[in-house]
Design a binder for these strands. Structure first.
Length: 554
RNA sequence: CGGGGCGUAGCGCAGUCUGGUUUAGCGCACCUGCCUUGGGCGCAGGGGGUCGGAGGUUCGAAUCCUCUCGCCCCGACCA
C-alpha cells in the first residue's frame, strides 16, 4: 500500500477528549475517529488491525472444531422474554418496535438466539457436541462509554456457544476454549491473566475472565504470586492482615464528637483494624447493618449477592432505624438483619456503643452480637491470600475475554432438549465464550507503546514493514524504494511505502506513531554504498544492510 | 442517573470573570510560489468562523441570564 493513496490522518497534537493512552494513540495515529459517544469509525489502519485479530480468532476457533455462523443483530422480543432477560436487563438493551408494533431489541449478546437455533436443529445425542461461533456486532446502550474503543455502545465480538450432552462434555469444551483463548492472546502479543470471575447477568456457576494488565483498565484483579490464585476483586477472597487478640473487658468510653473510625482511632489510640465499622444499608427488604473491620471496605457487589439491591442509609434514616446518630452505631443489641465480614468471627473489637458520644471496647463477636457471616470486604493490597496466606497483589486490568459455564440456564426456558440413548429428553448443557477484538487492539497499545507512538506486536500490526524513502526528489532513492516495495510485496509481506513528498522528519514521526514493527530507511548517503537501514520500532536498533539482502533479512 | 469539566476555523488553544479599539485572535494543518531534503525545515503570499443551538437582557453579546444539545472525567451501572 502506498501512503499517499491511503487515508492515514495522523495528528500532531493530543486530541482534547482522549485520556487513555490507547485512545489517544488510536486517534492520533489515524486508526479511528469518533462519531458520537461510544461509536467509532474504523479507518483503513484500524480496520486492518481488526482484520488481523479476527483472523487469529477464526484460526484458533476453527482449530477447536468451532463452526462459524452469523446471527442477526435485530431480535424479536419474545425470545428474550422467554428467558426472562427482557425484563431483567434494564436500559442497557436497545429496544425498538417494528412497523407492526412488535417489540424488538438489538442484540447485546446472543445466548438466546443461539439457543433458539439449537432448539430447532439439535435433536439427538448423536448431534452433540456442537460449538458455534460468530464474529459480529453487539449493541449496548452503555450508561457511560469511555476510554475510546475500550467501552463502546457498538462493538465487534467473537462469541461462541457450546452445546453438550452432559457436564463432562461442557467441561471439555470449556477447557478447549480456555486453551484456545490462551493461544489467541499470546499470538496477539498480550500479557494477560485468566482469573475467576463473577458470572453476573450471564448466569451459570463457573466463569473466568481473561485480563490484560493496564492502567486504563476498568477492572481490578487479585493475584497471589505464591500459589497462583487469580480472581476478579468482585469475588476475590482474601484474609485481612492478622491482628493480635486484645484482652479488653467490655466497657463504654466517652468519645465526644468523634464519629469516624479515623477520629475515634486517634482519640482512643487504638488502630483502625481493632474497630468494627458498621454501615446501615437500605435494601428492598428493609434495613441491613453491614459490619466490616475498621481498616477494610465493604464490597458493594459482594453485598449485593447477599442482600440484593441496596443503598447506603441517609443520616436521618440511621437515627430513625437505630435510634442513634451515625458515628456511634454498633452491631450490639440490634433487631435488624446484620451481615458481618467473615474475618470478624474471631477477635475483640471496639465500635460505636449505640449511645450518643460513646464507643464500646471489648466487643466479642458471637457473644456481644450475632450476624450472618459472609465475605463482604474488598480485597486490598497487603491482604493475605485465602489459599496460602502469602501477601496478595492487586492489578488494574482490561477484560479482553471471558468464558462461562451456563449449564441449562438458557436451554430449559427455550426448550432446547435432545434425546439421549434411552430416548429421554435432556436439556442441552451450554457454555458461552466471548472475546472483544477492539479491546485486544487497545490492550496491545496500552502494553506496547513509547513516547513516540504505538509499537504493534508483529502478529497484529497493520503492516509488516514500512519503507521510508527519505528524499523523493532523489531518483536513486525512489527507484530503490519501488524495487524493494515490489520485492517485499512479492514475498507476501504487507508493506507500506511512504511515497509522500514529505521531509524525512515527518516520515519518521508518522512511522513511529503508526507503530509498524519494522522500518526500512532509504537515505542518499547510505545508498551511495549500496546500503539501506532496517530499523526495529521497538528497540530502535538499526542495521545497515545491502539492498539486495533486504528480502532475506526480514 | 448523581457530581465535575468543556463546546470559539480541520486539530490544539487564547479571548468570557470585568459586554464596546478585535473587522474574533494565535500555533499547527490546508492552498500558491520559492527554498530545502536523515527527526514534525525556512521565507513570502493566501483561503477558511452563523464563537454548539434557541430564546432573552442591552444602544451594543463569544462575553451577562434562561432553556437546550453534545462531548470528556469521577461515581452509580455494566454481556
Amino acid at each position: 500500500m502506498r501512503f499517499s493513496k491511503m487515508l492515514i490522518p495522523t495528528l500532531r497534537e493530543i486530541p482534547a477528549d482522549a485520556e487513555a493512552i490507547s485512545h489517544i494513540l488510536m486517534v492520533r495515529a489515524g486508526y479511528v475517529r469518533q462519531l458520537a459517544a461510544g461509536l467509532y469509525i474504523y479507518l483503513p489502519l484500524g480496520l486492518s488491525i481488526m482484520r488481523k485479530i479476527t483472523r487469529i480468532l477464526r484460526d484458533e476457533m476453527d482449530a477447536i472444531g468451532a463452526q462459524e455462523i452469523a446471527l442477526p443483530a435485530l431480535h424479536p422480543a419474545e425470545i428474550w422474554q422467554e428467558t426472562g432477560r427482557w425484563s431483567v436487563i434494564g436500559e442497557e438493551m436497545f429496544r425498538l418496535k417494528d412497523r407492526t408494533g412488535r417489540d424488538m431489541c438489538l442484540g447485546m449478546t446472543h445466548e438466546e438466539i443461539m439457543t433458539w437455533l439449537a432448539q430447532k436443529e439439535i435433536r439427538s445425542y448423536r448431534d452433540l457436541p456442537q460449538v458455534w461461533y460468530q464474529i459480529q456486532t453487539k449493541l449496548r446502550d452503555e450508561a457511560r462509554p469511555k476510554s475510546g474503543v475500550l467501552r463502546t455502545r457498538e462493538f465487534l465480538m467473537k462469541d461462541s456457544y457450546s452445546f453438550d450432552a452432559d457436564e463432562e462434555g461442557l467441561e471439555k469444551n470449556y477447557q478447549l476454549h480456555a486453551d484456545a483463548y490462551h493461544k489467541i492472546f499470546s499470538r496477539c502479543g498480550l500479557n494477560f491473566y485468566m482469573v475467576q470471575s463473577d458470572p453476573g447477568m450471564m448466569g451459570g456457576a463457573v466463569s473466568h475472565e481473561f485480563m490484560a494488565p493496564s492502567p486504563s483498565g476498568e477492572d481490578e484483579i487479585v493475584l497471589c504470586d505464591s500459589c497462583g490464585y487469580a480472581a476478579n476483586v468482585e469475588l476475590a477472597l482474601s484474609n485481612p492482615k492478622k491482628i493480635e487478640r486484645k484482652d479488653w473487658a467490655f466497657e463504654e468510653v466517652h468519645t465526644p464528637e468523634k464519629r469516624t473510625v479515623a477520629e475515634v482511632s486517634n482519640f482512643l489510640k487504638i488502630n483502625p483494624e481493632y474497630f468494627l465499622k458498621s454501615l446501615l444499608l437500605i435494601s428492598e427488604k428493609g434495613p441491613v447493618l453491614a459490619v466490616v473491620r475498621g481498616d477494610q471496605e465493604m464490597h458493594e457487589k459482594k453485598m449485593n449477592r447477599i442482600i440484593g439491591a441496596h443503598r447506603p442509609a441517609q443520616k436521618q434514616e440511621v437515627k430513625d432505624v437505630l435510634g442513634v446518630e451515625a458515628g456511634f452505631i454498633g452491631p450490639m443489641n440490634q433487631k435488624i438483619r446484620i451481615v458481618a465480614d467473615i474475618s470478624l468471627q474471631e477477635g475483640v473489637y471496639a465500635s460505636g456503643a449505640n449511645k450518643q458520644h460513646y464507643h464500646a471496647k471489648g466487643i466479642r463477636p458471637g457473644k456481644d452480637f450475632t450476624a450472618e457471616w459472609h465475605d463482604i470486604t474488598i480485597a486490598k493490597e497487603g491482604d493475605l491470600c485465602a489459599g496460602c496466606n502469602a501477601p496478595i497483589r492487586i492489578e488494574k486490568v482490561i477484560e479482553i475475554g471471558n468464558i462461562f459455564k451456563l449449564g441449562t440456564k438458557y436451554s430449559v426456558p427455550l426448550n432446547a432438549f435432545y434425546l439421549d440413548e434411552k430416548g429421554q429428553e435432556i436439556p442441552l448443557i451450554m457454555g458461552s465464550y466471548g472475546i472483544g477484538p477492539a479491546r485486544i487492539a487497545a490492550a496491545a497499545i496500552e502494553q506496547n507503546h513509547d513516547k513516540d507512538g504505538i509499537i504493534w506486536p508483529k502478529s497484529i500490526a497493520p503492516f509488516d514493514v514500512v519503507i521510508l524513502p527519505l528524499n523523493m526528489n532523489d531518483a536513486k532513492t525512489v527507484e530503490t524504494a519501488e524495487t524493494l516495495y515490489n520485492d517485499l510485496n512479492g514475498k507476501g509481506l504487507d508493506v507500506l511505502l511512504d511515497d509522500r513528498d514529505e521531509r524525512a522528519g515527518v516520515k519518521f514521526k508518522d512511522a513511529d506513531l503508526i507503530g509498524i514493527p519494522v522500518q526500512i530507511v532509504i537515505g542518499e548517503k547510505n545508498l551511495k554504498d549500496g546500503l539501506v537501514e532496517i530499523k526495529d520500532r521497538k528497540t530502535k536498533e538499526i542495521q545497515k544492510v545491502k539492498v539486495e539482502e533486504i528480502v532475506e533479512k526480514l
